[in-house]
Design a protein around this nucleic acid. Structure first.
Lengths: 205, 205
DNA sequence: TAATTAACCAAGCGCTTGCTTGCTTAATTA
DNA sequence: TAATTAAGCAAGCAAGCGCTTGGTTAATTA
């Protein structure tokens, strides 16, 4: 257990350790039910040491949410970049849904689940997080617009995007990885519901 | 402020006062962020008095959730009972969605928002609540089955119901009563998304 | 009228919480 | 080699927490 400085300031790895552990615990037990001692213990520190890296527990939450949203955003862009057919918006939406569900349910990045915990933060922090989340929503509105323009979606009004996010973000409440439904199948179920297409057998589980 | 017994045991009104106040505060600030002193003060009691009516804070949460689910269930049934056309499942679904959104967003009964707080309860309490919630879901699965049978819905597999609940239960995260969207319009937007129908102008907000 | 009881209040106990303070150690720099 | 600094530890403080205990009061019952 080296105690001095190892990296002069390369990646601030212990700080990131704290962020990852805090995000995991916050998702698992909620913000208020997670103690700073829990977080410290999760990375092998003593109870007061996290406050060397973060001024307060709230700052830890804020940093975890914003960092997580940025990571999720980049995964989203990476997933759409792999879609070759840019003339059709449907495969792009499929890739985005799949990436989002992956972030939520299998990745290390279930940050949208923490959006409800912003209650614990003050107004300015909330605003900062809302801005980051707005940015995350832009590509979604864009793909919905394309789908509506090509007639595959009856409407791309804002409630559609918000209802879609509801479908997806509520999934952690009920989805179990051990269950009969794979994430690919769930993705297809969402698409079928949105685009009103028949997709019978594969989601009859 | 009478201190003795007033009603011999008619409705246990102070107990209900506590339940209502607790439910409201739990929804507002979350279970852990709500102190038993908050609840006591909300009904004009001193800090220790709620424990005359409830053995623990957890018991308060459990009773609030189960009571709320039962109230929501009866409102759901009452709303469907008013639908005269029983040959078509679509108006029934519309009434259910409207009633559910009313419970969530305008009523005194936003209990589904508390389902996430069951983390704070032990396994047996969780199971009891899950049973009450299962019962709430039965009419939904039934109406979805009818819609699928009449060809209005491509599939009524379980994920469809869960995705629908996600759409609805996520709404408290973003819906504002002061906003441009009425609950009736939101209901139509949900229906349009589910049934894939064109419903252009009215939800373009 | 006397005994009982439902429904509280006043006070506080033991514990946990977020956070602070002062010190220590190992790596870096001069 | 000497000074500096990043990164932590050990200890603990003040506030707040859920909950208990013993008494009090007004309505009910016998």
């Amino acid at each position: 257990m080296p105690r001095g400085r190892k990296p002069q300031s390369p990646d601030a790895s212990r700080r990131n350790d704290l962020l990852r552990a805090a995000a995991r615990l916050f998702v698992e037990k909620g913000f208020n039910a997670t103690t700073t001692r829990d977080i410290a213990e999760a990375v092998g520190m003593r109870s007061g040491s996290p406050f060397y890296h973060f001024r307060s527990k709230q700052e830890l939450l804020k940093a975890a949410i914003i960092g997580g949203l940025e990571a999720a955003y980049e995964r989203l862009l990476a997933a759409t970049a792999e879609v070759t057919d840019s003339t059709d918006a449907e495969p792009r939406l499929r890739a985005m849904i799949r990436a989002h569900l992956g972030n939520l349910l299998e990745g290390e990045c279930p940050t949208p689940m923490l959006l409800g915990e912003t209650r614990a933060l003050d107004a300015s922090d909330k605003a900062e997080i809302a801005a980051a989340f707005d940015r995350y929503q832009l590509p979604w509105q864009s793909v919905l617009n394309d789908l509506a323009a090509s007639g595959k979606l009856p409407s791309a009004a804002p409630p559609v995007r918000l209802l879609l996010f509801g479908m997806l973000n509520w999934a952690p409440q009920w989805y179990r990885a051990e269950g009969p439904l794979s994430l690919d199948e769930l993705t297809e179920a969402c698409l079928a519901l949105l685009l009103g297409r028949e997709r019978g057998d594969e989601i009859r589980k």
